[in-house]
Nucleic acid binder design. Sequence first.
DNA 1: GGTTTGAAACTTTTT
DNA 2: GTTTCAAACC
Length: 766
Amino acid sequence: MDLFENLNEQQQEAVRTVDGPLLIIAGAGSGKTRVLTNRTAYLIKEHGVAPWHILAVTFTNKAAGEMRERIDDLVGFGSDGIWVATFHSTCVRILRRFIDRLGYGTNFTIYDSDDQKTVVKDVCKRLSIDTKMLKERMFLSAISSAKDELIGPEEYEKRCGNDYKEQRIARVYREYQDTLKKSNALDFDDLIRLTVELFKLDKEVLDYYQEKFRYLMVDEYQDTNTAQFELIRLLASKYQNLCVVGDDDQSIYKFRGANIYNILNFEHHFPEAKVIKLEQNYRSTQCILDAANAVIAHNGSRKEKRLWTENPGGEKITFRQFDTAYEEAEYISHDIWQKKQQKGIPYCDSAILYRTNAQSRLFEERFINAGIPYKIIGGINFYSRREIKDILAYLKTVDNASDDLAVKRIINVPKRGIGATTIAKADTFAMERGITFFEALEQAEEIPGLSRAAAKLKGFVNFIYVLRSKAREMLISELIEEIFEETGYIRELEAESTEEAEARIENLDELISKAAAYEESFSDPEEDEEDLDDGDFTEDREERPTLSGFLEEVALVADIDELSADSDYVILMTLHSAKGLEFPNVYLAGMEDGLFPSYMSITSENPTSELEEERRLCYVGITRAMRYLTITAAKMRMIRGETQYNAVSRFVKEIPHGLLDGEVRSARTNERAEEAPSQSARAAYRQTPYYLTQNKPKSFSSGRTEKIVLDYGVGDRVSHVKFGSGTVTAILEGGRDYEVTVAFDGAGVKKMFAMFAKLKKLDEKG
DNA sequence: GGTTTGAAACTTTTT
DNA sequence: GTTTCAAACC
């Protein structure tokens, strides 16, 4: 395959430039992923670079997955030697191997933001800090920014001087970090920060990775923070083969510590750097592009560039302002329906983008009513749902009981009669002895002041022991089933028989599927092509599924974010999550001053820079659209139970009039007032619209697994991945699944659930 | 020790 | 409007 086919001059240049630092300024829709993947293939095929010398870093799992796929296609044999990963997973892999040099255990756990919050809350209580005055959130964000800037607790303490608040933060920071260390836990920021620390402290490790990653590529470079920059800088400092791709106009993560100067000053950091600009857009119509250019031109301090396209002019951008947010949702859902009917645009070609997650609600209700399939991306993370976290806490406890947080979470879930007082006593005991919470439980009889409670604690500890021994011979999916069974977790939910409980059960089913999928990903027998490495750089890729491995994967995945291509649904998400995606038909909803740009940014102490960030976000939104773009606003909407009246977003006014269909400031109000029904918009909204009478939704929930059909019965010979072959002795029908009892030839009698045991029927011989 | 109730906070964006 | 948290009650 010709790696230069269909590439324009600049793209070819970027692919061909393989040595030394390279900055690719890639405007929206300019084909940067293609450049990155082709460049990787070129490195290997034409330049003789070994795959294991290449590292490609992205921010999201989705981006990494996409790139992996395309690289695999291009490179073929040996491509799995290339590291294509997110910053976080790259660091985890490195730390899993070497973090013991920093005094942590290599089986560390990763705390998510919920866990962080719990720790900070705990710390505040311990230090008797009045959280009315100084909010936990404030501490968390201060700690996070400090870590992003590579400032450790000691350093922070030195810097804070006499400022009371700063001193408090320093104190909390130190305590927080100690707590994490004691639990052998790392938060997200630690993953990056400690990797940098490791590189700085241990020349040997740094050297190893510098040798390993001789060619580095970083995607979405404009969103890197100081720690990530340092990480990359250290890795690249030896061979200098660093290629970064980014677009300063799409930097939208300042709130998370992204340092836009990493890209603006790249040539300063790497004086040898070559700069290539990709300015031809292959995605959008001229009209959409003009609008995007006009908006972003209002920002100062940016690298000058002007996107152009050979695409046709296209239709004007539709703009509509409505009286209420309900009408807005109604209009958009109708428009999507109509475009499907009249132009044959499938639902999955349409996306609704908004500033805040809360806005998705109205659309969701509207779509359910109208029978239009939809999918909301983001919002509440799957893995931060209560029921999921509970079960994961069990798994963590089984896997690594030094995670105090996990143990405390489940010690009384389901109710075991272990209350706050008992937990507090055990906690104090653990603290005094400097042991973990779980270790304290193991010696419950030593804890002063416990009478009957000690026995209950013992019971819990034994339960964990039992699970541990079972875990050794069970698949993870089976272990989860076992936890359901032994704790009665599912039964309890079933007894509730509410819609909510039903949804939780579905989620738990989903979790088991996740575990099963994780396990299956190892059973692919494509192992036969034994790595033909040069000896030094094969390593650490786990060869079989482990509990730790599963927990880690889960910790680093933001959501079940597969946009499965086979189903046809409208996609709803925030502007932030839309970065990197494209859709033929895009709606930017809620374009109102106070919502977008947000009230926070307008009233902040530094409105100019905050507004510029919002404007970049707007730019990202506009440039997601390929053919059709619709911008909507509402005069009135409920936010937090309060009705707000908002003007049309200033960003809309920055789009030249000629590009818009629909008036921005005119007297449309009167027109509409006459049309609008006199009753409240809300009541009108409740009715099913005229355009949908049949076609009711079935279920849009992401998939409760259908009841399965068994191809074996009692007395049949079956085989199991782990236990080998055996004979089925009983099949019990349960609500969602069958419980199958099998007498295995080698492993004894086991009870298992058919859905996950994946038993295969054998011919009579066995 | 567990459950119920009412008030208060919450919302910008996420690996 | 929704969720979280603590106090009061059982």
